[in-house]
Amino acid sequence: MRITVTVDGTSYTDDVEPRTLLVHYLREQVGKTGTVIGCDTSNCGACTVHLNGQSVKSCSVLAVQADAADITTIEGLAKDGQLHPVQQAFHDNHALQCGYCTPGMIMQSIDLLTENPDPSEEAVRHGLEGNLCRCTGYQNIVRAVQDAAGKVRAAQTPAEQPAGSQS
């Protein structure tokens, strides 16, 4: 089957087997190896990408299901040499150890902050439930997400800030 997708702002048209998982398509045909394969069973979340603005585990989506979609991978977040605020917060807060879960954690965190721009520690932990880290114990990850939320809010003009948020 032939699909056309936009990945990190670039359009791709490729022939794919109907059974090809999106994670394999992104890594093997598009070359986006920052999207990692952790489990192939959707348990770990390491392969999380944004599909039309929503985080999905790319090991649970067929490439043909993504036809005509806009996909953002971890490689598509940095702009003009500047890390995305969540990427920067993960760096600043040492929210990684081996780094294997980091791409999926960052992608899921961005989705979480889109839905809840001022999450409590409990809300962050709940929002990241489907993403597993076997190294850090999550404390630095939670701290990074909350740090990123604060930086994003601080950078917004008052009109852009969600109702009830505090900078």
Rank of each mutant, 00 (worst) to 15 (best):
R2T: 11
R2N: 12
I3G: 03
T6N: 14
D8L: 07
G9Y: 10
T10K: 15
D15M: 07
P18Y: 10
P18C: 05
T20N: 09
L22K: 03
L22F: 06
H24S: 04
L26F: 06
L26A: 05
R27Q: 12
E28R: 14
Q29L: 13
Q29R: 14
T33E: 13
G34A: 13
T35W: 01
V36L: 12
V36E: 03
G38N: 02
C39P: 07
D40A: 11
D40Y: 01
D40C: 02
T41L: 05
S42Q: 01
N43Y: 05
G45C: 06
A46Y: 02
L51W: 03
G53P: 08
G53L: 11
Q54H: 12
Q54L: 11
V56S: 02
V56Q: 02
K57M: 12
K57R: 15
S58M: 07
S58L: 10
S58I: 09
S58F: 13
S58C: 11
C59H: 01
V61S: 01
V61F: 00
L62W: 11
A63M: 06
A63Y: 04
V64Q: 05
Q65M: 14
Q65S: 13
A66D: 10
D67Y: 07
D67S: 15
A68Q: 15
A69D: 14
T72R: 11
T73R: 13
I74A: 12
E75N: 13
G76C: 09
G76Q: 08
K79T: 14
L83C: 01
P85S: 11
A89E: 09
A95G: 13
C98K: 03
G99Q: 08
Y100Q: 00
Y100E: 00
C101T: 02
T102L: 07
T102Q: 01
G104I: 02
G104E: 01
Q108A: 15
D111R: 01
D111M: 02
D111E: 09
T114I: 11
E115N: 14
D118T: 12
D118E: 14
A123R: 02
A123V: 01
R125K: 15
R125H: 12
H126G: 03
G127L: 08
E129D: 12
E129V: 08
G130M: 00
G130Q: 00
N131D: 05
N131W: 02
C133S: 04
R134Y: 07
R134Q: 09
G137M: 10
G137Y: 11
Q139E: 08
N140M: 04
N140E: 01
I141K: 01
R143A: 14
R143Q: 14
A144D: 09
A144R: 03
V145N: 05
Q146T: 14
D147R: 11
D147K: 11
D147I: 02
D147V: 07
A148G: 08
A148P: 04
A149L: 11
G150C: 08
R153K: 08
R153L: 15
P158A: 10
P158W: 09
A159K: 07
Q161M: 13
Q161P: 00
P162I: 06
P162W: 11
G164I: 05
